[in-house]
């Protein structure tokens, strides 16, 4: 009965129910998108887009706009910037990181500027960077859920051609798959999921939810559909555990998401090492 008591305690307040709902939606989305991010070797692009979340969220506060709107707009714009500047779509593995890094540095500087311009916001900056449990509204939950459902539907539609393009772009092109369009489309979906994830984990720790469950799943499972499901399950478990721990201990949630994600990843490496031996 201890679990029922705990659940009752965790879900007693509206802000926690919102946090659980939003966190679950985000974890499912990040689990699906993240598996392809790891497969495609686009973790650096993912990390850069999450850095863009900083000016996105800070700018939204400064200009009095909804945070999710600011995040989504700036992340999507940056994704398109990465696609054209970094030529990720053409598989340029050498020029791309420099171009992406440039965007990342500029994003962080812009975020710092926005935060400085809005002087009364010291606590807010902390929340934007490292995530917060508090202040997730009912409206945000609905928006996040809608975003997650739409993005996952889009991923379901493009999943097989995207897998083909990610593994072997030349052969995929010969099969009539629009390689560049798919790569750009995936970057936009990545940007949207980063925007959603940033609301929960903060801009600096988005990586934890986007990459760690997916990377762990790839260590453990080699069938793509099963691996995606496992990535989602690990992400949801990490978020639930982090929310509960953060609530009970009063320490920041971003720390727990990252730590649990790290542990899961290390365990997956260990399990694989053992299974090979």
């Amino acid at each position: 009965m201890a679990i029922a008591d705990l659940a009752e305690q965790l879900l007693r307040y509206a802000f926690m129910r919102n946090a659980f709902a939003a966190g679950t939606a985000v974890a499912v989305l990040a689990g699906v998108i993240g598996w392809f991010v790891v497969l495609r070797g686009e973790t650096f692009a993912g990390h850069t887009l999450s850095s863009v979340g900083f000016p996105g969220a800070a700018g939204a506060v400064l200009f009095g706009l909804p945070q999710l709107l600011g995040l989504a707009v700036l992340c999507t714009a940056s994704a398109l910037g990465i696609a054209s500047l970094g030529r990720v779509a053409e598989g340029d593995r050498y020029g791309a990181p420099a171009a992406i890094g440039t965007i990342q540095a500029f994003a962080l500087a812009l975020g710092f500027l926005f935060a400085s311009l809005y002087r009364g916001l010291l606590n807010g900056v902390n929340g934007i960077l490292f995530g917060t449990l508090l202040g997730i509204t009912q409206a945000q939950v609905v928006l996040l859920a809608a975003l997650a459902v739409l993005s996952i539907c889009a991923m379901a539609v493009i999943s097989r051609p995207l897998l083909y393009v990610s593994i072997d772009p030349d052969a995929a092109a010969s099969a009539g798959i629009p390689v560049k369009a798919l790569s750009v489309a995936f970057l936009v979906l990545l940007a949207l999921s980063v925007a959603a994830t940033t609301l929960i984990t903060g801009a600096l720790l988005t990586f934890a939810l986007l990459v760690m469950p997916a990377a762990a799943a790839q260590q453990l499972v080699t069938r793509p559909p099963v691996a995606v499901l496992l990535s989602v399950a690990l992400g949801v478990a990490i978020v639930w555990l982090s929310l509960a721990t953060a609530y009970l201990t009063d320490y920041p949630i971003g720390f727990f998401v990252t730590s649990f994600g790290f542990v899961v990843y290390l365990l997956s490496r260990g399990v694989r090492r053992l299974s090979l031996a």
Binding site: L39, V157, I167, A172, A175, G176, I177, Q219, T222
Partner: peptide, 24 residues
Amino acid sequence: SLRIRARDVARLGLDGARWGIRVP
């Protein structure tokens, strides 16, 4: 580091260009 079964890679030649997921 590409941890996908050889079978799944070969299968892309059959249905890799098809939109939508494979129905379980």
